[in-house]
Amino acid sequence: MLRPLIAAFGVAVAALCLCPVGPRAVDAGTVVRMDIEQLARSAELVFDGRVLFARSFRDERGLVRTEYTVSVATSFAGGPQATRTFELPGGQLADGSGLLIPGLPRLEVGEDALLFLTREGSSGLRLPVGLAQGKLRLVRDGAGRAGLVRENADLTLADPQTGALAPAPVPSVLAYEAVAERIRAALRPSTEGR
């Protein structure tokens, strides 16, 4: 079980470099498709951590929004903070009513995730950059190694009998460190002083 995971990470790193995604196409409901670098550059906050708390409520306009508190493990953009509290549109109230936005990812309390969040608008809302693309679920194998599941990406293939991996241009499980390095590189100031 571990071997496929490790192999998957390797494939992921190679494959991501070949990923022919670009900003021209659009996604979900309706969103520009972005790669890791574009997500990082478009976001004001980039961090991973665990969702500690979620509270949905109606704002002054009567629209449901949800306040999340995340315990930050690693902050890539937006400065170091032990916790981050932010509000996303949508959510569900105690009476079962709610606001659903197709394409917007859901965050579950207790879930570990890497998030790319926009700056806060005048209404106090942030959004995951590129909606579902702005959330990568953080998973660990039995040895504690971290991977990121980009749930809208394609899947790494493995033969159920042999465990051999088939090539995949975009793996569903991305090596955490590889992604982290891409984020850092994308956010690093250009040597040309851009």
Partner: peptide
């Protein structure tokens, strides 16, 4: 408020 700068969102349908 659903389209902060950099959201990458072209259109949405709140339900």
């Amino acid at each position: 408020g659903y389209f902060p700068q950099g959201s990458g969102t072209v259109a949405i349908t709140p339900v």
